[in-house]
Amino acid sequence: MQQIKAIRRIGSVLGLILCAVVSFAQEKSEEIDVTINKDDSHIWYTSPWVWIVGSIVFILLLLAVLRGTEKRG
């Protein structure tokens, strides 16, 4: 039983060391190049009112389905 615990501990330590090595091995970039293409085209699903109306319709449909599944006694 103690051998299993020792093997698990050694495995955990080696796993943590491997994670540390991988995280330090990441390439560091000195330059950050960010390009944002902003055009005047309007996409319909980016408007907040579309999401509000869609949410209301979804809630109403959900309520209708749940209300219809009630058993009447």
Rank of each mutant, 00 (worst) to 15 (best):
M1I: 10
Q2F: 07
Q2D: 04
Q2G: 08
Q2P: 03
Q3L: 12
Q3K: 11
I4N: 08
K5A: 08
K5C: 02
A6K: 12
R8F: 11
R8D: 06
R9P: 01
S12H: 14
S12G: 11
S12C: 12
V13E: 06
L14D: 07
L14F: 09
L14C: 10
L16H: 02
L16A: 03
L18A: 12
C19L: 12
A20F: 13
A20N: 06
V22G: 02
V22S: 07
S23H: 04
S23K: 04
S23V: 09
S23G: 03
F24K: 04
A25C: 12
Q26T: 10
Q26H: 04
E27G: 04
E27D: 07
E27I: 12
K28M: 05
K28N: 06
K28A: 06
S29R: 11
E30L: 13
E30D: 14
E31T: 13
I32Y: 06
D33K: 14
D33P: 02
V34N: 12
V34A: 11
T35N: 13
T35Y: 08
T35D: 10
I36K: 11
I36L: 12
D39K: 08
D39H: 10
D39L: 04
S41W: 04
S41A: 10
H42L: 11
I43A: 09
I43T: 12
I43W: 09
I43P: 03
W44F: 14
W44H: 08
Y45M: 13
T46L: 12
T46D: 14
T46Q: 14
P48T: 03
P48L: 02
W49N: 05
W49Y: 08
V50M: 09
V50R: 05
W51R: 03
I52P: 01
V53W: 04
V53P: 02
G54D: 01
I56R: 00
I56T: 03
F58E: 00
F58Q: 01
F58R: 00
F58C: 03
I59D: 00
I59W: 00
L60H: 00
L60K: 00
L60D: 00
L62N: 05
L63Y: 02
A64W: 09
A64C: 08
L66T: 06
L66E: 09
L66S: 09
R67Q: 07
R67F: 13
R67G: 13
R67M: 11
T69L: 15
T69E: 15
T69C: 12
E70R: 15
E70A: 14
E70W: 14
K71W: 15
K71P: 15
R72N: 15
G73A: 15
G73S: 15
